[in-house]
Every structure is written in structure tokens, then in C-alpha cells.
Design a binder for these strands. Structure first.
Lengths: 194, 194
DNA sequence: CCAGTTTTGAACTGATCAATACAAAACGGG
DNA sequence: CCCGTTTTGTATTGATCAGTTCAAAACTGG
């Protein structure tokens, strides 16, 4: 064959993801991507078509990772459906204030706001990802409705959409400077709609 | 004195606001600002310190305008408090799908997500603006509680925070591709928490 | 150890970035 | 009408932008 690649493509995508996540798409230069990945420009442009292509890969990887975390949160058999939904909201708050205290937020939300309207492939990826999360949440909500934990007369799809919107709302509010105890009371109040 | 300015500063800020709103802060170049305002570079840099300064002015103007619209919506004496809150959510949906069908969304949300974490003065402006909206909504919610329209045992501040979060959530969901009827049912479901 | 293929680093592309320099043009008070 | 001030258009700054070129280095199957 030939000379093997010295880096793992996944590691590079991970590093690029961190860069895009921390600074946004436009504000991340190709030089930033070289620094973040530790690769030269040739290596990056050899492995990926363009900055945009690398962003799509980074976004897809983020979605994969975060949806795995969401599935794990929703799989907790020790909790009621309602408690699981509350745990999802709590996770968002923990991310915004503890896990990522630098204010980077969520790459999916950032991409939806910063790039989706100017970028059809990214918009399509976001729409697909939304559908995945919707189905995960709908399944949990319906199980809660069977258990009598969540009002059975409400449309489970609508409630799933509502929970996703609540996640987005918490994230935007956190970026606007709302403090943690306030967001926790907002999360509690949100569940009153379920 | 001397030669008078041929343009009105407010008009220039308005035009810049449109540009930032449509494309985002990073993606708007100073040339774009010249094109949008119809001014030369010298005129812009003579009237404003920098691109960043012009952005702050544009953001402030946006907030002023939008908060005026919000006040008008909340002042409708013919509606109950709950109906006014629903009208606020409906306005967001109408903006996202009808008024601004190009997907530009809300400049405040865009700024919160794209720039606030890297930009202290913008973050401070967003925080102040949040406080203004919070007080307007809290006043309406408390009047609804006096009328028996909104459950009086809930904390009015928390409900106001919740409504602002709902606005942010609707906007993010709209950017992620959720359709209009779905968002309207989400808006209805949100009010079940009040 | 060599032929053939791929990766890599460094230099470089033209374009565009935000911002400035400077002089000519345009004005108002006297 | 003209002096002093401000605005404006043009040209330009050095830096950085995303992306390419190209040859040397690195590797593997034979």
C-alpha cells in the first residue's frame, strides 16, 4: 500500500468539534482547526473536503454522542417517566453551569441559530436529529402515560415537542445570564404542563 | 460650524441592524455594512467606533423596538392575562414563519447564542434586556393572578421566566425545522403550566 | 531494498478582513 | 465670500481568510 495516516480521523473530528463548539462556525478559522487537531493544513484538507465538511462531521459526531447520553438518561429504570424528563432538564442546567462553564452551550442549538438558515445540509442534519430526540422522548412520555405518571389525555408527540422546546429555552436563558436556581425553578414549572 | 452629515444616524443603525440580524455578527463584514447602509467606510467609522460598536447600537435599537411591540401586545385590555401571554407566543410563531420567513429569527436570541459568551458588553446588554422583559411579563401575570385567570399559588417571577424560556424554545425549534402547527400546539401546551 | 502510493509540511494563492490615512469636497458662521 | 471644521471617497494598511500546490518524507507490499 502506502504511507499510513499518523492520526485517527475520529480524534481529529473530536478536536474540531471542540473548536466549533467553543467559538462557533464562522469564528473558527482553518488555522484554529489545525491548532485544535494538531494537524497540518494538508492533512486536514486531505482527510476532509473543506471546513464546511469538517463541520458537518463534527456536528454529526456531537449529535451521536449527546443522543447516546440522552438515551442513557431516559433508560433509568429506577425513575418514573416524569423523573426522567426532569433529569433531562437538570442535565441541561448542569451542562450550562458546571460541565461547560465557559458558556459554549450546545453545539446543536448553536448550529440551529448560527448556521441553519444559511446552510441547507446543516439544516437537514438538524431536522433529522430533532426527529431522533423526538421519538426517544415520545416513547418515555407514552410509558409515563401508561403508568398514570403523565396525563394520558395529552398528545404524547406534542409533549415531546414541548420538552425539546423547554431544553432550547433553558439554553437560551442560560446564555442570557439567568442564574442556576432560577432555571431550576423554571424546569420544575415546565413539568407542571405534563 | 461645518459640513453637516448627509445621513441620519438612526437610519444607518437600522440598516446595520438588518444586516446583522440576517447574517449574524461574524458573517457580516464591514463591506456588508457599507452596502446595507449605503454609506462609505469613512462615514461609518466616523460615526461609529468600530464594527463592534455599531453592533451594540444595532442590538440596543432592536431591543427598544421589540420591547415596544411586546408592551403593546401586553397592553391589550380586551384580553385576559392568559390570552395576552398566548398572544406573545403566537407573535413569535408568526415572526418565525410569516414575518421573517428567511429564518433570521430574533436578533436577541442570535446574539445570546452567537456572541454573548465571548463578549462581555453584549452579555451585559442581553442581561439588562432580559430584566426588562421579565418585569413586563411579571406585571401581566400578577394581574392575571388577581383576576383568577392564572393560578395565584405560583410564583409570578418563575412564571415570567418560564414564558421567556418558552419564547426561546419556540425560536430554537423553529430554526431546527419544526412546522408551524406543531409549534402552535406547543404554545398551547406551554400555557397549561400557568 | 525498491517501486509505488499516500501523507505531510511549507510556501503560497488571490480574496477578503477590520480599520486607517489623507486630501478633496462640502458646508455654516462671520 | 472665505475661514475653519467636518464629512466623504479613494486608496491602502497589514493581517488573516479558506484552500491549493508541490516536493520531500514515510511507509508497505513485493
Amino acid at each position: 500500500m502506502a504511507r499510513p495516516r499518523k492520526f485517527e480521523e475520529e480524534r481529529a473530528v473530536d478536536a474540531a468539534m471542540q473548536a466549533f463548539w467553543a467559538a462557533g462556525y464562522e469564528a473558527t478559522s482553518t488555522q484554529d482547526l489545525c491548532d485544535a487537531t494538531g494537524l497540518g493544513r494538508s492533512s486536514i484538507y486531505n482527510a476532509f473536503k473543506s471546513k464546511h465538511d469538517l463541520f458537518e462531521r463534527a456536528l454529526a459526531r456531537y449529535m451521536e454522542h449527546k443522543n447516546g447520553e440522552l438515551a442513557a438518561l431516559l433508560d433509568d429504570d429506577a425513575r418514573t417517566a416524569r423523573q426522567r424528563l426532569r433529569a433531562v432538564l437538570q442535565r441541561i442546567i448542569d451542562e450550562e453551569f458546571t460541565r461547560y462553564p465557559d458558556g459554549r452551550g450546545c453545539l446543536v442549538v448553536n448550529a440551529a441559530v448560527e448556521v441553519s438558515s444559511h446552510d441547507a445540509p446543516v439544516a437537514a442534519a438538524l431536522e433529522r436529529d430533532y426527529g431522533v430526540r423526538l421519538e426517544m422522548l415520545r416513547a418515555v412520555i407514552e410509558s409515563g402515560q401508561r403508568d398514570g405518571d403523565i396525563a394520558a389525555d395529552r398528545d404524547s408527540r406534542t409533549l415531546a415537542h414541548l420538552l425539546i422546546a423547554a431544553v432550547g429555552g433553558l439554553r437560551v436563558s442560560a446564555r442570557a445570564g439567568v442564574d442556576r436556581p432560577t432555571l431550576e425553578s423554571v424546569a420544575d414549572a415546565t413539568l407542571a404542563a405534563f
